[in-house]
Nucleic acid binder design. Structure first.
Lengths: 247, 247
DNA sequence: CGTCGTTTTGATCACAGTCAAGCGCGGTGG
DNA sequence: CCACCGCGCTTGACTGTGATCAAAACGACG
């Protein structure tokens, strides 16, 4: 059938380009979304409490969803990678419950309410793809919440590295042991609930122990996944099933 | 129209019974769900990592979604009240990313995959109701994450009290300043990322300061909402908009 | 009446935050 | 070309919040 054909085409395109959105979702999104917007690294493109769209499609780049305390300190709620759908709306259905900031140059498309509704109304595969992404978001935020509430600094950081390791390898056969981490230690601290000084200390310790190495402050290599898992309190196969989309 | 009529009926029923699921959702759920199951207080009715349904409808009672660290310590990810839809599935679409435990006797109905799909496929109001609940879940977990990562013990606990205060008053004109809190201090600590000893200390301090009073260890009265908000770092009207369903 | 779980309180300790100083690097302007 | 500046990282010293350990009071329940 025609739809089936579109589906296959999109699937292989997704694999080539590293998108993790399944099946025909990518082509559907392209037709439903506003024209893609190019966002420079560091730019805030959605503001906490301000009006926002129900869904943003992050075509390429890294972005963070974060919230700010009254005294100005930030907490990164989630890190979003290329291909992710970001749904920032609060319960009022109008305003964003957090801000969105680009970590790298990004290509972002907003999907407004009526189109977002129609997109999912029409097509079960799209609805399923959205559901499974929402489940992944919820599961990984839960893992991070567990460690924010109960984990040590080393556990929080080891988990962060492992989560990104797995997510970056989502499409591939094996996740990349070395990758570019486009965050300052201050931002890493904002994600892990730590001050930047302590991030530096724990990373130094990881380096000394041969668990990881950092180069140029933004490239990390995980040298001992096993010990990293021990620090993170993670069984890696189980974590993969929990937070990585099937296939 | 007939559907409109059903809708209105369900709406007033929802208001009478304190359900916060909008419009015709309740009647739709009753037809889609498995027979309601009665769960005693303290029982674990979904287990982390085990197979689970995509959605549980908590008809009455309180339940928590929690995750456990390898050393056995728990973190409560979310507290669910009567009328909530709980979606515990991880990204694999099969297993639960956390356990579900009843805090009070509960009435729970599982909604299995095919029915959950059909329920939303057919009816836009239902889809909208699910969306807005999902947004509320996401927003309040974000608020809690912010405070787990960045807040003091007093901030975490003050926020927890305020969140429940607002959620319990969702349907009513004014939220209840006094309510029954069916959790031990250990469980409160599990929600706030604190040990039970420290929960006791902070609550004692709140009592001495006249911010709140506790009776029988499970009834709380918020005596000074303003100072509680100051502790929590919250502007209460904004928080209400962010985490409480409209109307 | 004894047992178990919960709360309270005190004493001590450790992890992580804060403050501060120094270093390396890249960009900018004299 | 070099000097300067700003930003991010590193390291040290000190501090404080909250965890841990321990003991006692209390209440629910068999």
């Amino acid at each position: 059938m025609l739809e089936r054909k579109t589906c296959r085409g999109a699937e292989s395109a997704a694999q080539r380009t590293g998108f993790r959105v399944g099946c025909s979702l990518k082509t559907c999104l392209r037709s439903a979304a506003d024209p893609a917007r190019r966002v420079p690294a560091g730019a805030h493109f959605v503001h906490e409490g301000a009006q926002a769209a129900p869904c943003y499609w992050l075509e390429s780049g890294w972005a963070v969803l974060f919230k700010t305390l009254q005294d100005g300190r930030d907490q990164i709620i989630d890190i979003h990678l290329a291909g992710d759908l970001v749904q920032p709306l609060a319960a009022d259905g109008l305003t964003a419950s957090g801000g969105l900031q680009a970590l790298t140059p990004c290509v972002v498309s907003a999907i407004h309410a009526s189109r977002w509704e129609r997109l999912r109304a029409g097509c079960k595969p799209v609805r399923d793809a959205c559901d499974v992404q929402a489940a992944a978001v919820s599961a990984r935020r839960g893992e991070r919440m567990l460690r924010l509430g109960r984990g040590s600094a080393a556990m929080r950081l080891a988990y962060l590295l492992l989560e990104l390791h797995l997510r970056l390898g989502a499409g591939a056969a094996a996740p990349p042991r070395a990758f570019h981490l486009p965050m300052t230690q201050r931002q890493i601290g904002d994600a892990a609930g730590l001050c930047s000084v302590h991030v530096s200390r724990v990373f130094s310790q990881f380096n000394r122990d041969g668990v990881m190495t950092t180069r140029d402050h933004t490239d990390v290599e995980l040298r001992d996944i096993g010990r990293l898992c021990a620090h993170a309190g993670v069984e890696i196969a189980a974590l993969r099933r929990a937070i990585i989309l099937p296939q």
